[in-house]
Design a protein around this nucleic acid. Structure first.
Length: 103
DNA sequence: CACGTGACCGATT
DNA sequence: AAATCGGCCACGT
C-alpha cells in the first residue's frame, strides 16, 4: 500500500476546504500547506488526482485569476466554475477581488 | 548525479 | 499593462 507524501495530503485538505462559489490561487494553497514556494507542486498534485475525485480542484487558479489549463481542460474548469456561480470572462479571467477565498 | 519539465510566482524591465 | 527573467521544488529520464 503506497502512501502519499504529507505535502499532497495537505493540499487535498486545503483544497477540500475552499467553499463553493469561491476560488484561490496555487500560491495561496502552497503557503497554507507550509511550502510558500511550491506553487508548481500544487499544480502537480491536482493534475495527478485520481479520476472521480470529489476534490473541487477547479477552484484553484493562477495569481492573475486566470485558468492555467489549456484546450478542453480549460473549458471544463470554466464550466465547473460557471455552474457554481463564479463569473468567468470569455478569456477565462475571474474577478479575484470578488471571488477570492480568504482562509 | 545532471538535466529537462511544469495546472506557478514576484520583481524587474 | 504586458512581457521577460530568475527562482522554486518535486519528478522523470
Amino acid at each position: 500500500m503506497e502512501q502519499e507524501d504529507s505535502f499532497a495530503m495537505r493540499v487535498w485538505q486545503i483544497v477540500a476546504a475552499i467553499p463553493e462559489g469561491c476560488v484561490t490561487t496555487y500560491g495561496e494553497v502552497a503557503r497554507l500547506a507550509g511550502s510558500p514556494r511550491a506553487a508548481r507542486q500544487v499544480g502537480g498534485v491536482l493534475r495527478r488526482l485520481p479520476q472521480g475525485s470529489t476534490l473541487p480542484w477547479h477552484r484553484v487558479v493562477n495569481r492573475h485569476g486566470g485558468i492555467s489549463l489549456t484546450g478542453p481542460d480549460l473549458q471544463r474548469q470554466r464550466q465547473a466554475l460557471l455552474s457554481e456561480g463564479v463569473q468567468v470572462s470569455g478569456k477565462g479571467l475571474i474577478d479575484m477581488a470578488r471571488y477570492r477565498w480568504r482562509y
